[in-house]
Computed example of a mutant assay.
Amino acid sequence: MMPPDSPTPDMILPQPPNGTRYGMVNRRLGVLFVGRVNAGRSMMAEALLRHHAGHRFDAHSAGLTPVDRPNPYALARLRAEGVATGGLAPKPLERFMAPDAPPVDIVITVSELAATGMAGAWPSQPVTAHWALPDPDPALYPDADAPEVLVDAIFQDLRRRIDVLSVLPAHCLLALSQWRDEDEDGLRTA
């Protein structure tokens, strides 16, 4: 088995329609997870990607309408798994659309509102995906145990998705930004 960023023969690497060729990628890819309020799902995804593949990706998260503080159940779940939570705070999406923003190669929305609110928002051509996950806001659930159980399920789902994302070759991820279609897994470009 070849290492994740090893060169792949051109006959195996899918080429975009315009004939652009991709070689090895010698930098970390910027990944932005976007949620509704950037307090639970998107923040957990940021922390998990940083924890599992921070050597390959610069992970960030933001919200359409960020709240004042993170979801306490999300922070507790991350800490229980030994995932660093220092510096996690809700951030506005506008921060990542400014001219001096960190580069974003991949945008992953984690709420339906973010997915519809983000349509066509990126002037560059980042790879985009939508990971449909339920909202873990404790205010939505009258049962006292429900938010904790839901956050655990979201954490498990995110961990599986992050495991897959973190082993995909960077040059193949960047090649996706040149394609103009959508597959059944939700990878698409604007």
Score class of each variant (00 low, 15 high):
residue 81 E to Q: 11
residue 38 N to W: 10
residue 171 H to F: 03
residue 39 A to N: 03
residue 1 M to E: 00
residue 149 V to D: 08
residue 132 A to P: 09
residue 39 A to P: 01
residue 62 A to V: 00
residue 81 E to W: 08
residue 81 E to R: 15
residue 83 V to Y: 07
residue 48 L to G: 09
residue 165 L to I: 10
residue 149 V to N: 13
residue 23 G to D: 02
residue 50 R to T: 09
residue 93 L to R: 12
residue 171 H to D: 03
residue 44 M to W: 15
residue 45 A to S: 15
residue 86 G to P: 07
residue 101 A to W: 04
residue 138 P to Q: 04
residue 120 G to V: 09
residue 12 I to Q: 09
residue 104 V to Q: 06
residue 120 G to A: 04
residue 25 V to G: 12
residue 122 W to I: 02
residue 181 D to C: 03
residue 80 A to N: 14
residue 166 S to T: 01
residue 90 P to C: 01
residue 25 V to E: 10
residue 170 A to D: 11
residue 48 L to W: 10
residue 157 D to L: 02
residue 15 Q to P: 07
residue 146 A to F: 01
residue 56 R to F: 03
residue 17 P to Y: 05
residue 55 H to T: 09
residue 116 T to N: 10
residue 141 Y to Q: 11
residue 147 P to E: 05
residue 125 Q to H: 04
residue 168 L to Y: 11
residue 109 T to L: 03
residue 21 R to Y: 00
residue 33 F to N: 09
residue 177 S to G: 05
residue 143 D to I: 00
residue 165 L to Y: 12
residue 44 M to A: 13
residue 190 A to G: 12
residue 181 D to K: 07
residue 165 L to H: 14
residue 127 V to H: 00
residue 149 V to P: 01
residue 47 A to F: 11
residue 128 T to Y: 06
residue 33 F to C: 10
residue 151 V to D: 08
residue 115 A to Q: 14
residue 94 E to T: 14
residue 72 P to W: 02
residue 44 M to Y: 11
residue 186 G to N: 04
residue 148 E to G: 15
residue 49 L to F: 06
residue 28 R to L: 05
residue 105 D to G: 05
residue 37 V to T: 15
residue 23 G to V: 02
residue 136 P to R: 08
residue 89 A to V: 11
residue 145 D to L: 05
residue 107 V to N: 07
residue 147 P to D: 10
residue 139 A to T: 11
residue 51 H to D: 15
residue 170 A to T: 01
residue 125 Q to R: 14
residue 108 I to D: 12
residue 92 P to A: 06
residue 43 M to S: 08
residue 17 P to C: 07
residue 42 S to M: 11
residue 21 R to W: 09
residue 57 F to Y: 09
residue 163 D to H: 05
residue 5 D to E: 01
residue 126 P to M: 00
residue 152 D to E: 15
residue 24 M to A: 08
residue 43 M to E: 15
residue 17 P to I: 00
residue 78 L to R: 13
residue 172 C to Q: 15
residue 7 P to D: 04
residue 9 P to W: 00
residue 176 L to D: 10
residue 43 M to A: 11
residue 40 G to N: 14
residue 75 L to K: 02
residue 181 D to A: 07
residue 56 R to I: 10
residue 59 A to V: 04
residue 73 Y to L: 11
residue 45 A to R: 14
residue 188 R to W: 09
residue 181 D to G: 09
residue 102 P to G: 01
residue 179 W to M: 13
residue 164 V to Q: 14
residue 82 G to A: 12
residue 2 M to Y: 00
residue 108 I to R: 14
residue 47 A to E: 14
residue 22 Y to F: 12
residue 92 P to W: 00
residue 22 Y to P: 00
residue 66 P to Q: 12
residue 23 G to M: 00
residue 167 V to S: 01
residue 106 I to V: 13
residue 13 L to M: 13
residue 101 A to Q: 04
residue 98 A to R: 15
residue 51 H to A: 12
residue 149 V to C: 02
residue 87 G to D: 05
residue 109 T to V: 10
residue 29 L to C: 02
